[in-house]
Design a protein around this nucleic acid. Structure first.
Lengths: 200, 200
DNA sequence: ACCTGAACACCGTTCAAGT
DNA sequence: ACCTGAACACCGTTCAAGT
């Protein structure tokens, strides 16, 4: 059209956008810096000005992923009108994200990125903060910290596991939804040593 | 020593062995065919005689992984003296394997490999057969098939999720064991619509 | 049947040089 | 500050040729 905001100014944003769709299409393995530069119409050395490393680009993607997922969790929580529906909505939002952006999710939870401290871990912390809100502020648990942590971790692990099962094609997506519902029922009804109460 | 069974005869086995430790050390990304050939003292083209592809090598690794895990599950089941201890032992064996061989586990459950039919999927089938034994023959469920499948999938998803949490360094291994115990308690006590009975 | 070695196309990374 | 382009070391894959 009229303005073509190319080459100059927003290359970093362009690269991130393209990298995201490349990740969705071909996974992290298929994400090549040179191919990225080609698609952006710049020389193969240009990305270096914005990302020192291939890993730095992957880190930036993971960081954005954490923030998007945190936003999805918060938004799911906003629409809930009971404790139970809050948990259900958050769980489904989490699993949906993990399935639709399976490669991104892999990146976010790869041992490589989650080990080092830095902006990625900070973003991960923001996600866990959102999940804490979902379980704490709006909803749950007058229990000791150990039981709360265990519950939270089991919640996360179960959602992650279900998403992995669907993403790997081993079960259908609809069955994934069934599993989420069953798992939530189990988690909330379980004798985990904590109490789920509706404070409103 | 005396016999050096090199170069000739068992290159395929040597490559697989080395590839396994290379996978453990550096992950699937760090697994290079050329480096593998170098370590084996053969030319870079030699592996081609045994694996057409890099993917073919990864497939072979995944296949072996499934069979090793199936063996571990069976062995865990053999040592159980009650239904509950059977589930616990299988769950811990599964999670232990997934943590110790995290990269191999990723390979086994990657969408890439699990999609296509072939020897890898067959090996996956043998694992699921072993898990079925663990839940069916020795232990569980006089229930409809849907509930049984849901239970099995939830079992697998939960174990996989816990293992991923530990493997990514997000929780400590000891806490992983705690989660496994809690999860098993939940799964077995839950009102999932199936009945867990001890037939012995 | 199994292995060698040259060849090809592709990488990521570095770095001087341009603007 | 941002981008270019040559250079380097590494890939996977193919294929004729050797044994």
């Amino acid at each position: 059209m009229s303005t073509r905001p190319f080459h100059h100014g927003n290359l970093r944003a362009v690269l991130l956008e393209q990298a995201e769709s490349m990740l969705r299409a071909s996974g992290a393995d298929g994400l090549s810096l040179r191919e990225l530069a080609r698609q952006a119409g710049v020389s193969h050395g240009a990305p270096r000005s914005h990302f020192i490393d291939r890993q730095a680009l992957l880190d930036a993607l993971a960081e954005r992923g954490f923030d998007r997922l945190a936003a999805a969790v918060r938004s799911a929580l906003d629409g809930a009108e009971s404790v139970r529906s809050g948990f259900d909505r958050v769980a489904h939002a989490y699993v949906d994200f993990a399935i639709e952006d399976a490669s991104l999710m892999e990146l976010m939870f790869a041992a490589k990125t989650s080990a080092r401290p830095g902006p990625v871990q900070d973003a991960a912390g923001r996600l866990f903060g959102a999940l804490d809100e979902a379980m704490g502020a709006s909803a749950v648990t007058e229990s000791d910290d150990g039981a709360r942590d265990t519950f939270k971790q089991l919640f996360g692990a179960t959602m992650q596991g279900i998403a992995a099962l669907v993403a790997s094609g081993r079960i259908a997506r609809a069955q994934g939804d069934v599993l989420v519902d069953e798992a939530m029922q189990m988690l909330l009804d379980s004798a985990l040593g904590l109490r789920v109460v509706d404070r409103r």
